Simulated scan of single mutants.
Amino acid sequence: MTYQNELIVLLKIIIAAILGAAIGYDREKHGRDAGIRTYSAVCVGAAIFTSLAAHLGDTAAISRVVANIVVGIGFLGAGIISRDNGGRNSNGLTTSATVWCTAAVGVTIGLNEYIIAAGTTAVLYFILALHHQPWYVKWKKSIHHDGNE
């Protein structure tokens, strides 16, 4: 790998860190366990693995690396999910899902798909920020308190 290619990969890592941090910002702001550092690390890891595989020029290698990122982050996500209250309540589902999606952002960066990565980052941030919007909170209460409980 030439030093120019290494600098390109380094730029991808920086972009992944920034986009991962943007996704994790809302979680950090609201005191969740997974925040800026977690989301950045997941995005950076996925970007570097994908970038290095893409450098090999072997489509099969890239496919294997991406598939293993999906599986690996799936295991990480499974560890994030917990149950309490006798197994009646689940915690960590949103964090698990968005960490998984953040890995996908890293993969898109590694594959030079920057517009998709930026757009997905915006969508994920919007999804995470929904929970704190007054209209969404009101709507959620209305569907959970419909008199059937």
Rank of each mutant, 00 (worst) to 15 (best):
G87P: 06
S96T: 11
T59Y: 08
S142M: 13
S51W: 02
A54K: 09
A21L: 06
I18H: 01
I115E: 05
G24S: 08
Y39E: 06
W139L: 15
F49C: 00
I73C: 04
N85Y: 13
T94R: 09
S51E: 06
K141M: 10
L56W: 05
R32Y: 15
T38L: 08
L52H: 02
R88W: 01
V70G: 05
G119F: 00
A16H: 01
S63W: 02
V42H: 01
G35Q: 09
V137A: 13
Y125T: 11
S90W: 03
G24I: 05
E149Q: 13
H131I: 11
L130T: 14
D26K: 10
I13T: 14
A53R: 01
G72W: 07
G77Q: 04
G119K: 03
E28N: 13
A97F: 10
I80R: 05
I8L: 10
V137Q: 15
V70M: 06
R64H: 11
L76E: 07
S63T: 13
A60K: 13
T108A: 08
V42E: 03
G20H: 02
L130D: 07
I69L: 11
E28L: 06
A17Y: 00
D26P: 09
I80K: 07
A21M: 13
L10D: 04
K29H: 13
I81T: 08
A46T: 05
T98K: 04
I69H: 02
G119Y: 00
I143N: 08
V44A: 02
H131N: 14
H55K: 11
Y136K: 04
Q4R: 13
I23T: 05
L11N: 07
T94A: 11
H144R: 13
G92R: 07
N68A: 05
G31I: 03
S96W: 04
L128H: 06
I15N: 00
A21Q: 04
H144Q: 12
V107L: 00
A47G: 04
G86E: 10
N89V: 15
K29P: 01
H55I: 06
N91P: 01
G20S: 07
A122N: 03
G35L: 12
A103W: 01
